[in-house]
Design a binder for these strands. Structure first.
Lengths: 348, 348
DNA sequence: TTAGGTCGCCCTATTGCGGTA
DNA sequence: GTACCGCAATAGGGCGACCTA
């Protein structure tokens, strides 16, 4: 090891000013005339040290610019005060809210956020988890593409899911069933009697949920529902999705997400199909841009930042005093339909 | 903690199957009949171990499921194999490309990415750096809002800047000067003789560069250039910016970024101002949405993912064998103008 | 007894130096 | 002298056990 320090014949480091080697509890203890353990307790268990001593230690620490080394702290305890967030696709604006919310809450708890992108790959997702397992106190997985069983195989890791539910794990999702019902009621009230679902990735739990909810709600209201796809959940995927929707002769298309929905709108514009005069389009997520595409997209908005924050809370709470097993919580946050120009009365 | 189950008088750990305590070099060393140092070297400095021994160690390690503990590895060596990326505003889609590129490259190098949001605050930025300094091998700061001197005070940390240049530090930026020239030439060729710059945050280095480049290019081509603002670089800020632009009687507005530009377009639409018939609008960044707002936004696109990747490369290369001081590199990547519907011939 | 303080081992890997063929 | 390998110090702090007024 050898700190590189008071060496005159300089090596690696630049300028002056900054202290070479960061102060440790040893330095603080020596300067304060105390044992290192006393210094340690001052920071990690302050009640076990007298007020006088505590202040003294703080003063000396401040003066020396001492800051506990998080690594040294984490090594024996196993607590890294770090959380990993793994998202299915970092380019999808849908995740930005989740990332932002999680980052915020993680910081608020004095933790650090590690970010990983699984690029829609369940394998990469699992690899991420394995590689980070020792460096992290827990995982947050948003829109996991792993199969339920694969998730269970990771059981030994502390894990909270976002927009995915698996028995035995904490999760935070937006209310797909109620949200989807809002979509279908809206379309029904506009006189539509049939709709198509432009499906998302086969491995997406959310896609399955949405389709299921759509079909159920449609039945309840006497509409027919058809599933087309799957399509890649990107703007690019909207081209094929739009054409498929046209082929189906329906009057209303519900896209798996806004990315796909906006892609559909573009394709319709290219082909001269009127929205909503010829066909209505609905999306999910209310992503950035859904309000200024043309026509603006009717979509199901969810509290995604809150989802991120709640995910962190669930994860961190699991370490609480009552660490009696996982006691998983399945949180469901409300969604609400944002009606914009892409939906209108059924033609004819 | 605690899986919910079988342990009778159990303590911490769960189920069957999984090995209780992860294997350490001690376990491997014992099983292989070697010293821990040999095992350690097998993984961290393979050439210093004979091929026979190496294979033996690998075999034993494999069998025991041994994986080096990254924390324990980092403590004595000081190398955490982790990089922190700090962005000025995580909600600005502009950064997504950078984040994605950085994440990709960091992973490719076998490192881990920590993400921080400074919320446009130089103080928070500095705090981030301080708090993470011990946990990270280096920092990537995108669009830093810190003053040059504050950045220099962080000198002891390994640091690479994205979209910001400071003497003595490595950086990767897009070519503002040339890019801005493209904008001005485009406007000049359409017959515009005056333009306004709708300015970004006062503390943004980029905003200063853009204005400077704009003024220089305008002069060279005989256009007048006026700066208005600053405005918050958000869609919301576009309202005031649009009104200010109208007040100036100009025929062309260059917005600090696309977020602001799209906000301007919306406001113009509300007020019945024709774009580009009454006024042309240009943005910077070519963010998600710039191609489907109405009218689609003419904007200066840059290779942002590449910026993220390059930033990581510069940072990691700094640790190379020739660790002769920082030897900073200032990388400048080309920008190109994407012409869309928001710019047209000057009216009249 | 209790509050304040001290000792010394724990965690897991790295690495300089020295020893053995 | 050259390859290999092992000993033991080191990194920095947590924490239980024990000691003193």
């Amino acid at each position: 090891m050898q700190q590189q320090d008071p060496e005159p014949a300089g090596e690696t480091e630049p300028v002056a000013g900054a202290p070479r080697r960061p102060a440790t509890i040893y330095d603080v203890a020596r300067a304060a005339g105390l044992a290192t353990s006393t210094v340690s307790r001052t920071f990690s268990n302050p009640t076990r040290v007298s007020a006088r001593t505590r202040e003294h230690v703080h003063a000396v620490a401040e003066q020396l610019g001492y800051q506990p080394n998080p690594l040294a702290r984490a090594l024996p305890s196993g607590r890294t005060r770090t959380v990993a967030l793994i998202v299915a696709d970092i380019t999808n604006p849908h995740f930005f809210g989740i990332i932002r919310g999680a980052e915020e809450q993680v910081r608020a708890a004095g933790f650090t956020l590690i970010l990983g992108d699984s690029k829609e790959s369940p394998e990469l997702e699992a690899r991420h988890v394995e590689q980070l397992s020792r460096s992290v106190d827990g995982f947050l997985i948003a829109a996991s593409r792993m199969a339920d069983d694969s998730i269970r195989e990771l059981a030994s890791h502390r894990l909270t899911l976002i927009n995915r539910q698996v028995d035995g794990y904490s999760s935070a999702i937006v209310d797909v069933v109620d949200g989807t019902r809002q979509i279908v009621e809206h379309l029904a009230s506009l006189g539509h009697t049939s709709l198509v679902y432009l499906a998302g990735p086969r491995r997406s739990w959310l896609a399955a949920q949405r389709w299921h909810a759509l079909r159920t709600a449609a039945r309840a209201l006497g509409l027919t529902a058809t599933r087309l796809g799957p399509f890649p959940p990107t703007m690019h995927g909207g081209g094929a999705a739009a054409d498929a929707a046209l082929g189906s002769k329906t009057t209303a298309a519900v896209a798996h997400n806004d990315l796909l929905g906006i892609g559909v709108l573009r394709r319709f514009a290219e082909r001269g199909v009127g929205v909503p005069s010829d066909i209505s389009v609905v999306g999910y997520d209310d992503i950035f841009g859904a309000d200024f595409c043309s026509p603006p997209l009717t979509t199901l908005a969810g509290p995604f930042e809150e989802l991120g924050r709640a995910g962190v809370d669930l994860l961190l709470r699991a370490r609480g005093p009552e660490r009696r097993g996982p006691q998983p919580q399945q949180l469901v946050l409300p969604a609400h339909l944002v009606i914009r120009g892409s939906t209108g009365p059924a033609p004819g």
